[in-house]
């Protein structure tokens, strides 16, 4: 199967998450409401959307780890004459592992998106807990901490004159997650987080 067809599977998961978080999320999220009633609220859709984004980030990171392994076997997984070329970056021993740790970047991505997903699931399960603002800050902090890492990886791409579409998809997922955590944090500070409590107070 063409690598870009496979990439589109990851992209669709992330895109669905993004759409859930937008105003049209109410319409496209209706299929989730029966199974997950919380998605009938704006907060619920934001959290569900963020779960999809983190899951898409996780699957695309796992895919880059698979590519890393395949390239070490001597194969070719995503090469071409155009600027879009993963082999030249994921297969490049000078850039394909995390400095000091020596592990593939894909594994770091898997761990990072799992941590983000854990934070989102905890918030979704207990949105009114005292620890929720701490978790929101942790999610925002973790995604902001990902920016220098993305910067380093983009610098490798500029150096080699190549773009790795799979890596870029993971980077975009991190940036979307950062924006979503920020919006959630702002929402927490407003009455939108728990409108039912607002009604009770009135």
């Amino acid at each position: 199967m063409n690598e870009y067809v496979i990439l589109s599977f990851h992209a669709v998961i992330i895109l669905y998450g993004v759409l859930l978080m937008t105003p049209i999320g109410e319409a496209i999220g209706s299929i989730l409401v029966n199974k997950w009633p919380s998605t009938s609220t704006k907060r619920g859709r934001m959290l569900a959307g963020l779960m999809f984004v983190c899951t898409g980030g996780f699957t695309v990171s796992a895919h880059t780890l698979w590519m890393h392994n395949k390239l070490s076997e001597g194969g070719s997984v995503c090469s071409g004459s155009s600027i879009l070329n993963c082999d030249g970056l994921i297969g490049n021993p000078d850039y394909n592992t995390v400095p000091f740790i020596g592990q593939p970047w894909g594994l770091l991505g898997m761990v990072a998106f799992c941590v983000l997903l854990w934070i989102v699931v905890v918030i979704a399960k207990e949105p009114l807990a005292f620890s929720t603002p701490t978790f929101l800050k942790a999610g925002l902090g973790a995604t902001i901490a990902g920016l220098p890492v993305i910067g380093l990886l983009v610098s490798y791409e500029i150096k080699e004159g190549l773009i790795c579409p799979f890596c870029t998809t993971a980077h975009i997922a991190n940036i979307i997650a950062m924006v979503a955590f920020f919006v959630l944090f702002k929402m927490y500070e407003s009455d939108e987080w728990a409108p039912e409590l607002k009604k009770t107070r009135k």
């Binding site: 698979w66 076997e73 699931v121």
Partner: peptide
């Protein structure tokens, strides 16, 4: 999340031989 992580690792481990 841990289940998801290990499921991902297993898929990678069973389909590649680094």
């Amino acid at each position: 999340v841990i289940s998801l992580f290990f499921a991902g690792l297993l898929v990678v481990a069973f389909t590649s031989n680094p």
